[in-house]
Design a protein around this nucleic acid. Structure first.
Lengths: 189, 189
DNA sequence: TAGTATAGTTACACATTCGTCACTTTAAGA
DNA sequence: TCTTAAAGTGACGAATGTGTAACTATACTA
């Protein structure tokens, strides 16, 4: 009944992600997106009323897929295995914290966006409580120190992702070293 | 001989910093700056040929003052005291890493900017080697683990600054907790 | 093969930013 | 008081971004 599409939703989301990380929230434009997808700007507006709506839909997609991937981690048996899986997972797609910051910036210019932001904050809540439970488990099993607040534990893990690998170490080794420091600290004692 | 100025260089730099951190590199505009300083845009252009030049001058200022403040740290006697001073210092002005990223983004559109970027990269080098020497000292004194590359040590310290204090803990306590984790790790063992 | 729903394009109006230029204002010295 | 140099303003053209509307292209189906 219709013409073939020149780009899929998936392509649009992936391109959006790349552009957001490259140029930041304010540097992201529909012109850039359309050029990357090799279509006219107007084609984008067939699917989204405005930029904010597009970005809020993308954010929901990104965090939903993060959440669903995260749930597979709980299939690991020991806390230690789960911890390693979480670390590997976060380092595999290192941009979540940055994207979260940008998600907060989207102005609520219509009802769809309000709904998406609502959804986003629910996903965040689920994400956070499920991660917090995970940390709690670690504390119960006496693996994680009980004197460190969980939000600092999580914050630390997510922020380490952004440590620039200036020396160009092999990814795997680099992740191992960082995990080592996060687990046992900088000090020798 | 001349009229009184409505804003000082210092004010311009402070406002620039605030706007950069609030809106990001792409979101920073001369219009915003001029409004904040309560002057016309054209007044800004009396002092700077273009936006990039202004930003590159600001970056040099910011990193030079960081460097000079940093040098006072080496006056502390023991490594431990120096480490604490560094930590306190970084947490006192938490934005250095973000600003550094933005500094890298400035396009070189004329010679002044080229010169400033050159200067910036020299300051970075001094900054980095002086911090690296500091870490080396820690390793020699067997305080810092020798198996962790120095760039990861520094990266970790600078990144922890960005851990969001979601629970709204008192600043001092929050810094102490983070220092504790950075030094001794998440694990209880 | 003609109709139709969906995909995409071109072109427009509007807003914002940038950098410039001719102009006015102000304060100090001759 | 007159001159002058620096400070500041308002208005302009060029470029870029946003969102819309009228149009064309394509593929399925009756």
């Amino acid at each position: 009944m219709a013409r073939e599409r020149k780009f899929s939703n998936e392509e649009l989301y992936q391109t959006t992600k790349q552009l957001l990380l490259q140029y930041g929230y304010e540097g992201y434009t529909i012109t850039l997106l359309a050029n990357q997808l090799d279509v006219s700007r107007a084609a984008i507006y067939k699917y989204y009323d405005n930029k904010e709506e597009l970005l809020s839909e993308y954010m929901v997609y990104e965090f939903e897929s993060f959440l669903s991937k995260l749930e597979k981690i709980s299939e690991e048996k020991t806390f230690s295995d789960q911890f390693n899986a979480l670390f590997a997972f976060i380092f595999n797609d290192m941009s979540l914290y940055q994207l979260r910051e940008m998600g907060m910036q989207i102005p609520t210019v219509n009802k769809t966006i309000a709904k998406n932001k609502q959804k986003l904050s629910e996903i965040h809540k689920i994400l956070y409580t499920s991660l917090e439970e995970f940390i709690q488990l670690g504390k119960q099993e006496k693996v994680i120190r009980e004197d460190i607040p969980s939000n600092i534990v999580l914050g630390l893990i997510f922020q380490t992702v952004n440590i620039p690998n200036t020396e160009g170490m092999p990814h795997q080794l680099w992740v191992e070293k960082i995990k080592e420091v996060v687990c046992h600290g900088l000090f020798a004692i």
